[in-house]
């Protein structure tokens, strides 16, 4: 499986964020997107996720399911956690599992992996920022998708949480998955770096 982008151009609010960006990533590879603030890291992920329309260029996932579009084969973990405070931790996770079409799973196991097993039946409103992040990560485990698009996956997490994310990513890559992640700090994994927005 191969993610291919060629000549990708992003224009937002009349301003060209980046232009003619060409990169590729193959199965088992982590593409780390780096760059200054405002260089368009988040925009790049949202382009790949199909949430923004590129002003030019093309995107393709070769060797994926031909029946599905690229965004339908991807997980997007953005800055916002997509959680409802009125629902319990478990209800939040089960909703995304049902909506995104995951296989029946043992919720306790996914929650234990991200360290939230003790909070399964508590309202998500009681969670801290780091715990909300962990719950979002549990979504990536509950539904299997080959391509992960992670926007600052370790933000708001403590060191054990960061180690956990590294472990999850390593497992996903080992299983033949593909990850595009934006980051400020090193992720502790061998990665291919994509620097955008010119030299620093």
């Amino acid at each position: 499986m191969r993610l291919l982008a060629s000549g990708l151009t992003c224009v937002r609010g009349g301003r060209e964020v980046f232009s003619a960006l060409t990169f590729e990533a193959v199965a088992g590879e982590l593409l780390a997107v780096t760059g200054r603030n405002g260089s368009g890291k988040t925009s790049l992920l949202r382009l790949v996720a199909g949430l923004l329309t590129p002003a030019g260029g093309s995107l393709a996932l070769e060797g994926g399911d031909t029946e599905l579009t690229l965004p339908e084969q991807a997980h997007y973990l953005g800055h916002r956690d997509a959680l409802k405070p009125a629902l319990s931790v478990l209800e939040n996770l089960q909703f995304w599992r049902d909506f995104l079409g995951g296989k029946p799973f043992d919720p306790a196991e996914s929650l234990a992996t991200v360290g939230l097993a003790h909070a399964a039946h508590l309202p998500a409103a009681y969670l801290s920022a780091g715990q909300r992040r962990r719950l979002s990560l549990a979504r990536l485990l509950a539904v299997k998708r080959p391509l992960w698009l992670l926007d600052e996956p370790t933000s708001a997490l403590d060191t054990t949480g960061q180690d956990m994310v590294t472990g999850l990513m390593r497992n996903h890559l080992a299983g033949g998955g593909l990850i595009v992640a934006t980051t400020h700090a090193p992720l502790g994994l061998t990665s291919k770096e994509l620097r955008i927005g010119g030299e620093q």
């Binding site: 360290g115 485990l141 403590d158 180690d163 080992a174």
Partner: peptide, 14 residues
């Protein structure tokens, strides 16, 4: 949250 989170991430279902 912390001590449970520290259980080896490798144990997650692939």
């Amino acid at each position: 949250s912390n001590d449970v989170g520290a259980t080896s991430p490798a144990s997650q279902p692939a």
